[in-house]
């Protein structure tokens, strides 16, 4: 895949980190404001996608990253399940998905127990999954058009 012009590359270089940080913000504030793990994860993945579109020539390097992304994705899902299943053990009454951490004050960043934790995990998983899907599609198109 070919890259785009210098202008696009330069603008992307400025924009991608901002988009990524905004994604992290949406994930971390998932329990306080609209958004959350899924939406934030998609925003984070869109920063990667922007980079790939602008700098198409890095695609060959990315093929090797695919298995790493798959690893990250599986680990995140497993982490989600582990946090949910810990509720079975820690809640005292064997409740799956129980909120076993301290709830804190409503409206503060560190509150709502396991929900921010699960949001971070969902964000990681969605970011890795969307990036994997995108890379797979680009690689597929690359191979078909060859």
């Amino acid at each position: 895949m070919k890259g785009m012009t210098v202008i696009v590359k330069k603008v992307t270089q400025f924009m991608a980190p901002v988009i990524f940080i905004f994604g992290i913000y949406v994930v971390l504030n998932g329990h306080l404001s609209p958004g959350g793990g899924f939406a934030g994860g998609v925003i984070m993945a869109s920063a990667f996608i922007l980079q790939i579109l602008a700098n198409g020539e890095i695609l060959d390097k990315l093929r090797k990253e695919e298995s790493g992304l798959e690893f990250l994705e599986s680990t995140a899902i497993l982490g989600f399940l582990v946090v949910a299943a810990l509720g079975l053990l820690l809640s005292g009454s064997f409740v799956f998905f129980s909120n076993f951490l301290k709830q804190g004050v409503i409206g503060e960043l560190l509150s709502a127990g396991i929900i921010p934790l699960e949001n971070i995990i969902v964000g990681t998983e969605v970011c890795a999954a969307i990036a994997t899907i995108f890379i797979a599609l680009v690689v597929f198109k690359d191979e078909v058009t060859k």
């Binding site: 298995s67 798959e70 690893f71 599986s74 680990t75 899902i77 497993l78 399940l81 582990v82 949910a84 299943a85 079975l88 064997f94 799956f96």
Partner: peptide, 25 residues
């Protein structure tokens, strides 16, 4: 007794992702 009902979903899901992580090694 009831506490074991979610295991029907937890166990196969967890096993699937353990396979995804450790199966390659």
């Amino acid at each position: 007794m009831n506490a074991m009902i979610p295991l029907f979903v937890i166990v196969p899901l967890a096993a699937a992702f353990f396979m995804a992580i450790l199966g390659r090694f």
